[in-house]
Computed example of a mutant assay.
Amino acid sequence: MNHAAGELEESRLQKAVEMIAITPEAATKLVGGYRATFEAKFKREPESLEDKCRIAAKIIGRYSKLSAAAGAVTAAPSVIPGIGTAVAVLGGGVTDIAMALKLQIDMCMCLVEVYETELSSEDKKHLAFVLALAGSVEQMASKGGKAAVLKIAEKLVYQYLRGPALITIKQLFKRASITFTQKAMAKAIPAGVGVAFSSSTNYVLTTVVGKVAVAVLAKEVK
């Protein structure tokens, strides 16, 4: 892949994911349902950090299962909205990567809503994209164990959060495109992701990305 073609593929990937990712407003509505369920069960609002962690765990579980269910592009449209749009934009080339990132960004958008309700919609979106992309890319690139990946990914997220948001997100899409493609071609995905990959690896990566996001968000709100 030459440089120009690489840039085009990355921009198409970013465009597709931004088109199909959940909006902050939709995340607010979805998280509102989790808060209502919590209030009905515990007869109080989820205000403490522990309460928020309970809701976050439910969200991570939901998206990890969705990711596992997306076993193939042909089977996934009934499970995950947006696949048709991704195929139209990407022509099937990196649709598996786009759908994987979409689910992780959707999850992180909901997690941001749990912990950072006062942020503007645009800031919530930027934060969710950085959390999902940085956490996912680091795990795909890492050769270490899960505990090491969590620490390294958390550090990477903080590093990227200090940079200009739009430039950072573009850089992360570039890393995601390169890293995921290399892993897929090498067929050496440690705890990988992608609609074309196995349901178990989808589940693991989405869960780890969620845990990294919670680790960062929980520290930010203390």
Rank of each mutant, 00 (worst) to 15 (best):
M1Q: 07
A4D: 13
A5M: 06
G6T: 03
L8C: 02
L8S: 05
L13P: 14
T23D: 07
P24E: 10
E25I: 09
A26V: 09
T28Y: 09
K29Y: 07
V31R: 14
R35S: 03
A36E: 15
A40W: 00
A40R: 01
R44H: 11
E47L: 14
C53N: 04
C53M: 04
R54I: 15
R54C: 11
R54G: 12
I55V: 14
I59C: 06
I59P: 08
R62L: 09
S67Q: 11
A69H: 00
A69W: 05
G71N: 01
V79Q: 13
G84W: 12
T85A: 10
G91F: 09
G93S: 02
V94F: 10
M99D: 13
M99Q: 13
M99I: 15
A100E: 05
L101C: 07
L103Q: 13
I105S: 02
L111P: 08
L111S: 06
V112S: 05
E113A: 12
Y115D: 02
T117A: 11
E118A: 11
S121D: 12
E122G: 01
K125M: 09
L127E: 06
A128S: 11
F129H: 15
L131A: 05
A132S: 12
V137P: 09
V137R: 10
E138N: 07
Q139G: 04
K143D: 14
G145I: 08
G145F: 08
K146T: 01
V149F: 05
V149E: 10
L150R: 04
K151A: 13
E154H: 11
Q159G: 03
Y160P: 06
P164T: 02
L166W: 00
L166E: 07
L166V: 04
I167L: 01
T168Q: 10
I169V: 11
I169E: 06
F173T: 04
K174H: 12
A176Y: 06
A176D: 03
T181R: 12
Q182S: 07
M185S: 06
A186C: 00
P190W: 01
V193Y: 01
A196Y: 04
F197L: 06
S199P: 08
S200I: 03
T201C: 02
N202V: 04
V204M: 01
T207V: 04
G210W: 00
G210L: 02
K211P: 00
K211T: 03
V214N: 06
V214S: 07
L217N: 01
A218G: 05
K219R: 13
